[in-house]
């Protein structure tokens, strides 16, 4: 092993130490929410065990000191009233980018599955959850819309995120040596022409940010990832090329859910309903909005569990505006399973 290789490994270890401490802190935050009280101190035992399997050069006294430091810092952080927002994917996912656009003061916490987000916001582990509902090139996110049908949560905000894909590789990589590119299939698809032009082999991976993380941690030879600029920062990767998407207009819309509805005035509303299986029922609903000049921004149908169809409808306006109020009263009479998902503001970001 030469000097350079040793330096490289040392940097890798430092990177892992920091990422692990971050992860530890996130778990503690979750733990305290589940226990409903601050019992973070109880995980001290784990540290004491660590002394048993520590070996070699470092004295146990050092571990104790280090752990005390970590615990003190953890307690300090736990005392602050953080608001947590759950997103699906690894850190650096586009959902996290959207969460930061929505409110930078929230702490984004990664979840593996969409269901986890809804369940844990409902259970009070997280204050908010952010999920993608539609993309202008990829269409609806069906799995999320199914979950929205079944949830008791309320929509309290939305973000329209302009998706810009970046080609990322570990720092110091020679771009001419790149051969394979890891990312989520949708991202690979959206950069298909770019990859073909540069003779790069697409390799499907479960997540964009997960691919970035894997590239950073495992450094497979001649490999790059497609992910967000945020992922480049978080995993210390070099951005070989920004904006590699084939079509410049690539927008994903996210909804933010919470247990309580928002009470302030909003600029947009989302509702969901079903109609009887008869000719013209949906038309009569749409007519209610048309007559009052209310602009619809989204209409989507989705099979529900009872074998009929649910319709998602978004429109412009505040729920307390008189025309909106009247329209909603009228629509409730024309539909079944009507539910107001929320009245909220929408933000735009890159």
């Amino acid at each position: 092993m030469n000097l350079e290789e040793i330096h490289k490994l040392l940097r890798k270890i430092d990177y892992r130490l920091i990422k692990l401490l971050d992860e530890r802190m996130e778990l503690l935050l979750k733990l305290t929410r589940l226990q409903q009280e601050n019992q973070a101190a109880s995980d001290v035992n784990g540290f004491q065990d660590a002394e048993k399997y520590s070996q070699g050069l470092i004295r146990p006294e050092f571990y104790r000191r280090l752990y005390r430091e970590i615990l003190t810092e953890s307690k300090k952080l736990l005392d602050r009233d953080f608001k947590l927002i759950a997103f699906q994917g690894e850190h650096g996912a586009y959902s996290e980018v959207a969460a930061r656009v929505w409110d930078e003061s929230l702490i984004p916490i990664p979840c593996t599955e969409f269901t986890e987000i809804f369940e844990e916001v409902e259970a009070g582990v997280f204050d908010y959850g952010i999920v993608p509902v539609e993309n202008n090139t990829g269409g609806q996110v069906n799995q999320v819309n199914q979950l929205v049908l079944g949830t008791s949560l309320h929509v309290i905000g939305a973000v329209e995120l302009h998706i810009h894909h970046c080609l990322l590789a570990p720092k110091g990589t020679d771009y001419r040596e790149l051969h394979s590119v890891y990312s989520h299939t949708q991202a690979l698809e959206q950069c298909r022409q770019f990859l073909a032009r540069n003779k790069l082999q697409p390799v499907p991976y479960y997540d964009t940010a997960g691919a970035a993380r894997m590239i950073a941690e495992n450094t497979p030879p001649s490999a790059a990832a497609i992910a967000s600029k945020l992922a480049a920062e978080l995993y210390n990767l070099e951005i070989i090329k920004e904006n590699i998407e084939d079509f410049p207009h690539n927008i994903t819309r996210f909804l933010i859910f919470a247990r309580q509805p928002r009470n302030e005035p909003g600029e947009k509303c989302s509702i969901v309903f079903s109609t009887e299986h008869k000719a013209g029922t949906l038309f009569r609903v749409l007519e209610v909005f048309a007559r009052r000049g209310i602009n619809l921004t989204r209409i989507e149908s989705m099979p529900n569990l009872r074998g009929s169809f649910a319709f998602f409808l978004d429109f412009e306006g505040d729920q307390n505006d008189r025309p909106v109020k009247e329209a909603l009263q009228e629509v409730q009479k024309l539909t079944t399973d009507f539910r107001m998902l929320g009245c909220y503001n929408e933000k735009r970001g890159q």
Partner: peptide
């Protein structure tokens, strides 16, 4: 200057 750079330079 390098044939291997051509497609990359085209990107920028």
């Amino acid at each position: 200057v390098d044939p291997r750079d051509v497609t990359w330079v085209c990107e920028f």
